[in-house]
Simulated scan of single mutants.
Amino acid sequence: MEANNRKKIVTTLKENILNPKDFWIAQKQSTETHAQRITGFFLPLLGLAAVAVFLGEFFRSSHFYMGYAVLKAMREIVLFVLQYLLAVYFTNELIKTFKGEKNIEVVRKLVLFSMTPFLLVSILTGLFQFLYVLDIMGVYSFYIFWLGANELLELPKEKKDSYIIITILVNFFVFSFLSIILSKLLTAYF
């Protein structure tokens, strides 16, 4: 990864986490394509999370068993990719239920950047598994989603808050379901 790409990722992370309101205003005018956001932001963070989970699991085991660490890293990748895809689908489909204008490009941006705290927490807890209590910090994603939805989505004012709450709950349950199922599959295999 080039130094420019790393700098851009760090800047995006900093703005997204520390100043989300201004971040979403800037994203509203952004001309970056979906592919650029995926390859320049999401995949590097996801790769870093997978490597962190691999290293954390590999060095935690008493026998340095690589097979389980690889499967755990793959589980992390599958979890976040499926979460992204399903969250985009449900977030976009729920818009028409609340009499809004569906816009897949805006929804992709909203879901992708609101997953940032979950990815950062996964990197931290993947490397240092004893810090799992910090998983609660991923809830900050909901706040980022709330601000982004208010800024980016075209919904009737009286239905916007209901839409955001329902969408957050749906995406939370999807993430929980995927996490449990993938963990059960992993433990069933090993």
Results as ranks from 00 to 15, higher is better:
His34Gly: 10
Tyr140Ser: 09
Ala149Gly: 15
His63Ser: 15
Ser183Arg: 15
Val81His: 15
Leu86Gln: 07
Tyr68Ala: 10
Gly56Arg: 04
Val78Gly: 09
Ala26Asp: 14
Leu85Lys: 08
Phe58Leu: 06
Lys184Arg: 05
Phe41Thr: 00
Glu105Cys: 02
Pro20Gly: 01
Leu127Glu: 11
Leu112Gln: 12
Asp135Arg: 11
Lys96Glu: 14
Arg37Met: 06
Phe90Gly: 01
Glu158Met: 02
Gln27Gly: 06
His34Trp: 12
Ser141His: 02
Pro156Leu: 01
Ile25Lys: 15
Asn150Met: 05
Lys14Ala: 12
Leu124Pro: 09
Thr97Asn: 14
Pro156Thr: 02
Thr11Asp: 15
Lys99Ile: 03
Leu169Lys: 13
Leu134Asp: 07
Thr91Asn: 09
Val133Tyr: 14
Thr31Ser: 11
Pro117Asn: 06
Lys14Asn: 12
Asp22Met: 02
Val53Tyr: 09
Gly47Gln: 04
Ala73Lys: 07
Asn16Val: 00
Ala35Val: 12
Tyr189Trp: 13
Arg37Leu: 00
Leu131Asp: 08
Leu119Val: 06
Leu178Val: 05
Leu134Ser: 08
Phe80Trp: 11
Tyr189Val: 08
Phe190Ile: 07
Val78Arg: 08
Lys184Asp: 13
Ala50Gln: 05
Gly67Ala: 04
Leu46Ser: 00
Glu154Cys: 09
Thr125Trp: 03
Ile104Leu: 14
Val174Tyr: 04
Leu155Trp: 02
Lys8Gln: 11
Phe175Gln: 12
Lys157Ile: 00
Tyr89Ser: 00
Thr116Gln: 07
Thr125Ala: 05
Val51Asp: 02
His34Pro: 00
Phe177His: 03
Asp161Lys: 10
Glu151Thr: 13
Thr12Met: 02
Met1Val: 03
Phe64Gln: 11
Leu124Gly: 11
Ile165Asp: 11
Ile181Trp: 07
Lys99Glu: 15
Glu2Tyr: 07
Ala26Cys: 00
Ala35Pro: 03
Gly47Tyr: 02
Phe142Pro: 08
Leu43Ile: 11
Leu85Thr: 01
Ser183Phe: 12
Lys160Trp: 08
Asn19Thr: 13
Ser179Met: 08
Thr39Ile: 06
Gly100Leu: 05
Leu155Met: 04
Leu127Gly: 15
Leu46Lys: 08
Ser141Asn: 13
Ser62Phe: 03
Phe58Arg: 05
Phe80Pro: 04
Phe175Arg: 09
Leu134Lys: 09
Ser62Trp: 04
Leu45Glu: 01
Leu13Trp: 07
Thr187Phe: 14
Gln27Ile: 02
Arg6Thr: 02
Tyr163Phe: 10
Ile123Cys: 11
Glu93Asn: 02
Glu101Arg: 15
Ile144Glu: 07
Trp146Tyr: 15
Gly126Pro: 10
Gly148Ser: 04
Gln129Gly: 14
Phe41Gly: 04
Glu32Trp: 06
Phe90Tyr: 10
Leu94Gly: 12
Glu105Pro: 07
Ile164Ala: 11
